[in-house]
Every structure is written in C-alpha cells, then in structure tokens.
Amino acid sequence: MDAALATAFSVALPAWLVDDLDGISARPLATAPQRMSLANELADRNWRAGNGGPFAAIVVDAASGALVSVGVNVVLESGLSATHAEVMALSLAQRALGRWDLGADGAELELVVNWRPCVMCYGATMWSGVRALTIAGEGAEVEALTGFDEGPMPSDWAGEFERRGIRVSVGVGHDDAIEVFRAFGASDAVVYNARGS
C-alpha cells in the first residue's frame, strides 16, 4: 500500500434522485403511509439503478410532513461502506439545517426508513437528534430475503430509543417493503457484506 493518505471524502445522492427532488418535494407526506410509500419507492428504484442496497430513508417534520431530506444507500456508487440510506438522510438534514442536533430548539423531526436500521445506522439515528423513527418492519426477513448482514442489534433496541426520547413506530408499509427485498433477493444485484455472504 503505497497510496498517499486520504484527507477528505465526499458523497452525494445519485443523479436520478437529484433530478427528481422537485417532484418528490411536492408529494403529500402528511401521513405515515404516504411517507413510507416514498421510502419504499426510492428503495426499489435505488437498487435497480445499481447505487447500493434496497434501502431508503427520509427526514420529515413529524407534525406537518414537510420534507427535510432524502437518502438512499449509495455504498456501491460511492465505494464507502458508511453511506447507508439513514446516514445519507440524517447527514443531508443536518447540512440543510446547519446543525448536528436535529432535535435542537424543540424540533420534532422524524426519520422514516423502509426497515429497522442496521447496527451502524442504529447509532447514527440515536445520536442525530431526531425525535421519532418510523420503520416498515424489523426482524430477520430482510437478511433472509436479501443476504445483507444487519449486525448484532441489542434485544431491546426500540426501548433504548424510547428511553432517549425517540418514539418508534413499526409496521407501516411492511408488505411493500417485503416486496422490494424479495425482488432484490431474486436478482443478481451485489450484496456487499465485508465478510462472507
């Protein structure tokens, strides 16, 4: 390894998503099903475009549904293992609002993800300052259908969020999320577990 030490990195949303942001921003997101419908749609488009896994996340104002940011998994496009959908959405929300604490000044922001966060995104979500997490589901289905390793989650993962003032809602858009994972698993898309398959 004779390469020079890296001193910076950058990452961006894929072009297809950037091109669609005006239309996405105009969508009604007042209800949890509307929010999850967007997350599931973006997750399906993302893996089919070859950017990364079948995962998407959005950050919205919990009361109004105003869209703050969107994120999709761009591990394959970026070559960076940390660029999961949650990290992208949370980081872009922090950039948009100009603060690392998304709960500052009483803000009630919600992260909406098409499945329970992996162990890395669990920590990222916990420290982000969001006040709510809405997911399509939890459990081993995502690993069984896709082959991704989600990591060793605490058995009381939702309770840990709740104790830190982060409300958790599970089951919104569950069947649609499963169909996205099923389609991914039936394809020849890359599963990028660092160790094994």
Rank of each mutant, 00 (worst) to 15 (best):
A6Y: 00
E162W: 01
A82N: 03
F55Q: 03
A85H: 08
D156Q: 13
M36Y: 03
A3I: 07
R163G: 13
N46A: 11
A136S: 15
S81D: 12
D149I: 06
A140Q: 11
D149F: 11
A4L: 15
D156R: 14
M36N: 09
D101S: 08
W127R: 14
V74W: 01
N51L: 02
W100M: 12
L80F: 11
L76S: 13
S197Y: 03
E138I: 05
S197D: 07
G53D: 09
G151N: 11
E108D: 12
G159E: 09
S10W: 01
G185R: 05
A136F: 00
A177R: 09
I178H: 02
W115Q: 06
G98K: 06
P154I: 12
V119Y: 00
T125G: 03
S169W: 00
G65Q: 09
S10D: 12
S64M: 13
V11M: 04
A12S: 15
V75Y: 00
A6E: 14
G79V: 07
S64V: 13
A89D: 13
I58F: 05
G159P: 08
A30T: 14
A132S: 15
H174W: 02
G53T: 10
A56E: 08
L42Q: 08
T83V: 07
V74I: 15
L145R: 10
V180C: 05
W157C: 06
A144R: 12
F184W: 06
A8E: 14
V191N: 11
P154Y: 07
R35P: 00
S10T: 15
S187K: 08
L17M: 11
V70Y: 04
L21F: 03
D105W: 01
L111C: 12
Q94T: 08
I58K: 09
G53E: 13
D149Y: 12
V168D: 03
M153C: 01
G103D: 06
D2V: 11
P117M: 10
G123Q: 13
V70E: 08
G171F: 03
V170M: 02
S64Q: 08
E86S: 10
G147H: 05
A82K: 02
R95K: 13
G71T: 10
C118N: 12
S155M: 12
P28S: 15
T7V: 15
T31C: 09
D149S: 13
R35I: 04
A132L: 07
P28Y: 04
D188Y: 00
S64A: 12
R195H: 12
D105L: 05
F184M: 06
A183I: 00
F9C: 05
D44H: 09
C118W: 05
D175H: 07
R163K: 15
E150Y: 12
L76P: 00
V68W: 01
E160L: 14
V191W: 03
D22L: 01
V68F: 02
C121T: 06
E108N: 06
A82H: 05
A140Y: 01
A56P: 10
S91Q: 11
G79W: 02
G103R: 01
V180N: 04
S81G: 06
D176C: 01
D20H: 05
